[in-house]
Amino acid sequence: MKFDLVIVGVGGQGVILVSDIIGKSAVREGLSVRAAETHGMAQRGGSVENHLRIGRDFGPLVPRGSADVLLGLEPMEAARCLHLLSRDGIAIVNTKRVLPVSVSSGKLAYPDLDEFFEEAKRIFRKVLLLDATELAKKAGSILATNMVMLGVLTRYLPLKQETIIETIKESVPKKYLMVNLKAFELGKTVKTRSIQLSTSSKKLL
C-alpha cells in the first residue's frame, strides 16, 4: 500500500494534529509512515505544509505532482500547493478563508480562486470544495475544522475508520473529544459538491 498525502493550512489550524492522527493510525495498522513538518518561523500564523507518506521507505517529502490527496484547510494555501498533487489525485479544500495580515490590513486583496479551482477540476481527478468551518461550527466549535477535513479525507485513506477514531480518542483532550468526534462524523458523511468560494476581488486566471 502506497499513499502520499499533503496537508496544508495556516499556523494554528491544527494541520499537525491531523497528520499525527493519520501517522499514528497507520503505525497501528502495521504500515510504515514518513512525515515532514513545518516548525519555528513557519508557524506564527504563516503557511503550514505537512507531507505524509504511507508505505514508502523513501524520504518524507512528497515529490511534486505525486500526492494522492491534497488536503487544504484554507483555499489560498491549497492553491499554493496544488502543484504537489498528482493528476490522478484528489484535492479536498475547505473554502473558508483565513486572511493573511497583508489582506486583513487592507494592503493586498485576497484573490478570487473560483476560476482557479474550476480549472483545477479539469486537470485533476477530483476537486472537492466544502465549507468545513461551517460544519465544524455545527459540531460545536470552528476549532474542529481540521476534524471535519479529516472526516472527508478518511474516504480516501488506506486506513480503517475505526483505527482513526481510536487514535482521535487518544490524541484529543477529553474536554474537546465530543465536539471533535462530531466534527469528524460530519466530515465523513457530508455530501461534497462544488460551491462558490466567495465574492471576488481580483481575477487571477
Partner: peptide, 11 residues
Amino acid sequence: IKELLPPRPPT
C-alpha cells in the same frame, strides 16, 4: 498562480 498569491509569512 503561486506568484500571484499574497504571501503568508509568520507574523
